[in-house]
């Protein structure tokens, strides 16, 4: 080994020494600077998972709320807001669970309610929505609706209370004057428990034919088709949207 070293030219010896020095410096740095838990579980600092797992929980979760507020929970679980967790309206409650002196807020105005219930055409149809501009403008929502059991003070008479998008579309269509109930029969329970009591829908071509067949006994001006010749494979609403029929276009 030593013999080989002696054979090296002087400049090479110098370079090798510098290289070894560099490697030694790197090893020392690695020893002192790499956190001891790095690579413990994988290519990362092991302690960081624990740090993240131990972060403070702010939303306690509905199960915890129910434990003390079982009276309100009882009411809420029977109503439309059963799936709306307590902390949606009252804010993060973990601090309150730990120390009941820390009070949570109860929203009193209209701002929070309309985040969900303001009319937006993009919202799924059937979701109860209002136009806050015209819906009892000055009154806070809670003066008529109990947020824990938000039954309307009187069941809405108009279908548009929940089916705003359809109502709006229909209002400027050729079918504007056709009442919803002409095509859909809803049981009274639909207003109380909508999804379990769905309204009816027309089932056959003949239903539309009552107005649109050539021999239909209705006023002049309604477009007519030959029910036997016109696209018999389909039911009418496969091509024509009944809430916005395209006649004339």
């Amino acid at each position: 080994m030593l013999k080989l070293w002696k054979k090296f030219p002087g400049q090479l010896k110098r370079l090798i020494l510098i290289f070894l020095l560099f490697v030694a410096a790197l090893m020392t740095a690695r020893h002192f600077l790499i956190p001891h838990d790095y690579g413990q579980y994988g290519n990362y600092r092991g302690g960081s998972v624990h740090e993240i797992a131990n972060l403070e929980v702010k939303y306690a979760g509905q199960i915890v709320c129910v434990d003390c507020h079982d009276d309100i929970a009882e009411i809420k679980f029977a109503g439309y807001h059963k799936n709306v967790a307590c902390e949606v309206c009252h804010g993060p409650g973990a601090a309150h669970v730990e120390d009941s002196d820390i009070e949570l807020t109860s929203p009193r105005g209209r701002d929070l309610c309309i985040l969900c219930h303001e009319y937006l055409p993009s919202r799924p149809t059937g979701f109860p929505q209002i136009v806050s501009e015209s819906h009892n403008r000055v009154k806070p929502c809670i003066s008529c609706h109990d947020p824990h059991d938000p039954v309307p003070p009187e069941a809405p008479k108009e279908c548009s209370a929940c089916h705003g998008t359809i109502a709006r579309t229909k209002s400027h269509s050729y079918h504007a004057d056709v009442e919803c109930v002409y095509c859909h029969q809803a049981s009274p329970e639909h207003k109380v428990n909508p999804r379990e009591n769905l309204p009816s829908k027309p089932k056959t071509r003949d239903f539309c034919g009552k107005c649109h067949a050539e021999d239909a006994d209705v006023e002049f001006g309604i477009p007519r088709v030959d029910m036997d010749a016109h696209e018999k494979r389909y039911v009418c609403w496969q091509c024509h949207y009944p809430h916005l029929p395209e006649a004339g276009q």
Binding site: G61, Q62, K82, N83, P124, G126, R195, E196
Partner: peptide, 22 residues
């Protein structure tokens, strides 16, 4: 079948929510 009617699923069962969480 319910959900085919484009519902928001509010009635899908309150028990489910709590129980699922548990």
């Amino acid at each position: 079948y319910d959900s085919e009617h484009n519902d928001a699923g509010c009635d899908a069962g309150r028990r489910n929510f709590v129980n699922c969480a548990l």
